[in-house]
Design a protein around this nucleic acid. Structure first.
Lengths: 230, 230
DNA sequence: AGGGAGACCCTAACACTGCTAGGGATTCCC
DNA sequence: GGGAATCCCTAGCAGTGTTAGGGTCTCCCT
């Protein structure tokens, strides 16, 4: 009993077969939809089963656990990030563009993005993304060490930034949060937190986050470039 | 019935009073200990109650919900990050140092750090930290806008980096993970992921993460500095 | 001194969770 | 025709966060 792929334990596998009635891809997609619509806290295996028209224990024939399902689901999200071709742009422009797109993809699925920290995005799509990023860097003349650095830094930065951005009120379920924070900061005692209250408006200004994101990313990549001349 | 502080809803308050038998600080500390020892998945309100010598419903007299408890707990962790005095170092050195220390504090509590993404660290200690960082920037001559940028970028970067770092195998419960990933990357088909497999060793090399962390942070702060001359 | 308010913890229970054991169909191959 | 494999089911376990409501103890006020 139970099939669930002959892969490395704990990491989603990469071989797809033809499934008859209901396959893992459909389940992952339905789970993502449910997460998008109902939010993070509302998700449960039972509700997912209802959405699929089956009973919850049947899910466990397709998927080893809720956690594995989440791995699958994250890979679906990561797979939505386009990998631009080798056009005329410089390596830096391409990676900044990729970072911006990945961020957009994550922000489009806030509830799913909350699952990402604590996980390694090494599903098939995640691997493809990793290979692409590292390829761009190696092609640009970085050695293996710095290419590995660059990939991890880019990934960590984007995931971290998007995650915190969502915490600050991005997404439907957290949208009220932003107003709360704005009010909270406004009511803070200025004598106790003089600097924070002075710049409070800048923290909650919604537009401009993209600009901030890009600033940091450019800084990281620029520093990476600087390090190879040493 | 129920007291739980007259604060802004959803965000931990900042006024401490004298509590008789068991106060929120003790509960938060015990929760942190439990998380450190047993790991993220093993935590529950009932186990926390046992550790405190009471029954679980009694916790709800002190704390509104598990979520609020987590906010408290995170502020305890954040509070462990020292804020260096205004010594002779430049603003950049001081902020890099602060980032390194904050990262260390987070890595020392991996299970608790997994709670941080999706949350805004605006407990009393988090506010103190924010005010300090922004203060350093403003004192260095940055305007309000860039100071706000800098604080968010620093915070997002550190939290994101530490979170992913933990996912990659830092911490007791995830330590086996690193070996898994190493083996997983080694067994990957080189024709499908040529670049990734070429640099696989660099990704799982444990030492050097501090170096990578610092590289990115220096890059971000340097870019921030560059932007003010425009 | 007596009464009341509040602090602090309890028992009982609700609605829900992830997940397993084990059993029926249906399909396909030998 | 027999057997294996696929795919879903019912029943149920052990555990979760949380609420309702009731006790007891302490302290303050009159």
């Amino acid at each position: 009993m139970a099939r669930q792929e002959p892969d490395i334990p704990g990491l989603p596998g990469g071989i797809e077969e033809a499934e008859p009635r209901l396959d893992r891809a459909q389940i992952a997609q339905a789970a993502l939809d449910l997460l998008d619509e109902q939010g993070f806290d509302a998700f449960s295996m039972r509700k997912l089963a209802v959405a699929l028209g089956i009973k919850s224990p049947s899910l466990y024939w397709h998927v080893r656990s809720k956690d594995e399902l989440f791995d699958l689901l994250i890979d679906v999200v990561v797979g939505k990030c386009p990998l631009p071709d080798d056009d005329g742009r410089s390596w830096e422009e391409r990676l900044v563009g990729l970072g911006l797109e990945l961020r957009q993809v994550l922000l489009a699925h806030p509830a799913a993005t909350r699952l990402l920290p604590g996980r390694v995005p090494f599903g098939p799509n995640g691997l493809r993304l990793a290979d692409h990023i590292i390829g761009v860097l190696r092609q640009a003349g970085f050695d293996n060490r710095l290419s590995g650095y660059g990939y991890l830094l880019l990934l960590f930065y984007v995931v971290g930034f998007a995650g915190q951005e969502i915490a600050f009120g991005k997404g439907p379920e957290n949208h009220a949060r932003l107003g709360q924070i704005t009010g909270f900061l406004r009511d803070l005692p200025a004598d106790r937190y003089p600097h924070l209250t002075a710049v409070a408006d800048e923290l909650t200004a919604r537009p401009g986050l993209t600009h901030r994101f890009e600033l940091g990313l450019v800084g990281i990549l620029g520093e990476l470039d600087r390090r190879r001349r040493e």
